[in-house]
Design a protein around this nucleic acid. Structure first.
Length: 640
RNA sequence: GCCAGUGUAGCUCAGAGGUAGAGCAACUGAUUCGUAAUCAGUAGGUCGAGGGUUCGAAUCCCUCCGCUGGCUCCA
């Protein structure tokens, strides 16, 4: 009996001998089509996989994400084969599948030019047509190292030496062999619909001081239609890129003469910011926060005491004022701490929740700047909570609740939550770390939120929860962050007098919900594709007289709307109505109120709604009521 | 910061050693029009900045600045 294992596969369960290959089981099943591989315990394997334990097997077919992963991994190999044929002497690094595609890293003296990439793609098509079988081969570690050393593939030798067991798995297709666990397709002819997308620099093993490699990115699909759709979707996403929409809609700009990573908020962007800030302040006041304001600079000594000068790399050089060194702030925390320290605190005062829209400046390396999403000057929607050990759990839960409410109001439903735990280098004692990490995790569990654990990714001073939201091109950006801090309270010797009359150290939670107004605005522009909901739209209504004869009526309507605080304008230009409509649609104004002789005579309006179209005649009062309602409720809809 | 690409009118782009171009937007005029572009005219540029090669540079070379993709995904 001990030679038998139980295999769960395809809704059935069967007993097989130890050492059975997956493929032997599969031939016994009546399947439509052949699977590409299997997934066991979350790992992908090919059909040669030998079963030695009782496990559950998931079959991988082409129409799945896992199937695509196998295809893309094989396409990466195909690309490496093409590169080695065209550019002999190139050394191969690693070539994994990634979200939406794959890449392969190469080392070569000369960089790949765009023409080289075209040649590589052409060669890949040729190799695909040649229908080269892809075979798995098992070698001893010694053999494998010899083979790759002979081929001059030093990087592979390094990897095999480090990661290879006694037996080393390789995949071979024609003249190309790669050290790889697989799984892979069985022939290059199965790789048909692919495209090389871009190249870039990369460091060997992600080490900035290490070897500089060239990375080539590509993608692949099983169907031509899917590839075309993907390429089309990239083009579409570029149209709602905030860096394109922002200047187009006159929301913000970045001026080279002012400096990289510094944002100019134009009037239309500024009104949106104001509305976001008002909402943010209201919510915080409702939730027991108090507002504070702090300066933009402080003496360098303050940053020495906080530890920023030693630990924080993004500081600007200090400036001298009256022989004393001052530093522009990269964070708000030391200021809030000084407010805490401005008097003796008692357990009766706690929790203290201090919020500030605090503008900070950080030196970000030039290559990482990115529109509104990564800048050098930005305003954090910051707050610091000082609380006792007993209050920690409920404070964290309340921060998460507030976060979810705010994100929901803006219409965000998709985001990723991460819990980052203790890194190797850390300050504070283990008990506190454990308590705080548990408090964070318990809050997530209590609220039944899906989250991933980022082991060791916490900051040196404490564990944290991050919420990331994706931009138009699918890149995730950290917005919300909830961090515990074991560093500053002790560095500044924060205390409160407990019930017992003794001094205790408060817990400190550092949190930002939107992250920064700049980044959040960028994400928001892309989230709405520039079609802001009524409550945020810089201009909510534009009144379009059909000819000059109804200009007076249009202006009367503008007056009426303005009385109710509705943000509106009238297009008095001497243009045809279709021209004015086109302009208003391009400016993504929610409502177009069209008035001609008919409306003037009947005393009503014609309404056209952005992205929806002509809604016909309407009473002015009804329209006003609708707009006010949607505005007040922060509705994401344009019509009721 | 590093690798590669890129920078011409407000925007989208053409020009690739020999006098800076188009469309849209802007401005002026005509047209008075019913749901995504009426017609005509006018104006707009140290070709990112600085240096060099040349009789002559937007174009070739160098330096700097900005922007774009990537530098996290691990055989």
């Amino acid at each position: 009996m001990e030679n038998l294992i139980r295999i769960e596969i395809n809704d059935s369960s069967l007993l097989v001998k130890k050492g059975t290959k997956v493929s032997e089981i599969i031939t016994k099943l009546n399947l439509d089509g052949k699977p590409l591989g299997v997934k066991i315990n979350g790992e992908l394997y090919d059909l040669d996989f030998v079963l030695n334990d009782s496990v559950k097997i998931d079959l991988i077919f082409p129409d799945s994400e896992d199937g695509l992963e196998i295809l893309r991994h094989s396409t990466a190999h195909l690309m490496a084969q093409a590169v080695l044929q065209l550019f002999p002497g190139t050394k191969t690094g690693i070539g994994p599948p990634v979200e939406n595609g794959f890449y392969y890293d190469f080392y070569r003296d000369k960089p790949f030019t765009p023409e080289d990439l075209e040649k590589i793609e052409k060669r890949m098509r040729k190799l695909s047509k040649e229908d080269i079988p892809i075979k798995k081969i098992i070698l001893s570690k010694k053999e494998a190292i010899e083979i790759f050393r002979e081929k001059g593939q030093d990087l592979k030798v390094e990897l095999i030496e480090e990661k290879g067991g006694d037996e080393v798995t390789c995949y071979q297709q024609g003249d190309f062999i790669d050290f790889c666990l697989g799984p892979h397709l069985t022939s290059t002819s199965q790789i048909k619909y692919f495209k090389i997308l871009s190249s870039s620099g990369a460091y060997w093993r992600g080490d900035e001081k290490g070897l500089r490699l060239q990375r080539i990115y590509g993608t692949a699909f099983f169907k031509k239609e899917d590839l075309d759709n993907y390429l089309h979707s990239i083009e579409e996403a570029k149209k709602r890129d905030h860096r394109k929409l922002g200047p187009e809609l006159d929301l913000f700009s970045i001026n080279e003469e002012i400096g990289a990573g510094l944002i100019l908020w134009h009037p239309k962007g500024a009104i949106i910011r104001k509305l976001i800030e008002d909402f943010w302040k209201e919510e915080h006041l409702k939730n027991g926060y108090e507002l504070v304001y702090t300066p933009h600079i402080a003496r360098l000594d303050l940053w020495r005491q906080s530890g920023h000068t030693q630990f924080y790399e993004a500081m600007y050089p200090p400036m001298k004022i009256d022989e004393v060194e001052y530093e522009i702030k990269p964070m708000n925390c030391p200021f809030h701490i000084m407010i805490y320290k401005s008097r003796q605190r008692s357990y009766r005062d706690l929790p203290l929740r201090w919020a500030e829209l605090g503008t900070v400046y950080r030196f970000e390396r030039s290559g990482v700047l990115h529109g509104l999403l990564r800048v050098r000057g930005f305003t954090q929607d910051d707050a610091h909570i000082f609380c006792s050990s007993e209050q920690l759990g409920s404070e964290i839960t309340n921060v998460i609740k507030l976060t979810l409410k705010i994100l929901k109001t803006f219409g965000f439903k998709e985001y990723e939550i991460y819990l980052s735990t203790r890194p190797e280098k850390f300050v504070g004692d283990l008990k506190d770390w454990e308590k705080a990490t548990n408090a964070l995790e318990n809050s997530l569990k209590k609220m039944e939120l899906n989250y991933k654990i980022d082991p060791g990714e916490g900051v040196f001073y404490g564990p944290k929860i991050d919420i990331k939201i994706k931009d138009a091109l699918g890149r995730a950006w950290q917005c919300t962050t909830i961090q515990l801090d074991f560093n500053l309270p002790s560095r500044f010797n924060l205390t409160f007098i407990g019930k017992d009359g003794a001094l205790h150290r408060p817990f400190m939670i550092h949190r930002a919900i939107l992250g920064s107004l700049e980044r959040f605005f960028g994400i928001l522009i892309e989230h709405y594709k520039g079609n802001f909901p009524v409550w945020l739209a810089p201009i909510q209504v534009i009144i379009l007289p059909i000819t000059e004869k109804t200009n007076d009526y249009a202006l009367k309507i503008e007056d009426s709307l303005k009385k109710y605080g509705i943000r509106c304008e009238t297009d008095l230009r001497n243009e045809k109505i279709s021209y004015k409509i086109r302009d208003a649609e391009k400016n993504k104004i929610p409502y177009m109120v069209i008035v001609g002789e008919r409306e003037k005579k009947e005393g009503n309006i014609s309404l056209r709604v952005h992205t929806i179209g002509d809604k016909g005649k309407m009473e002015l009062e009804k329209f006003i009521e609708m707009v006010i309602n949607l505005d007040k409720n922060k509705s994401l809809e344009y019509i009721i």
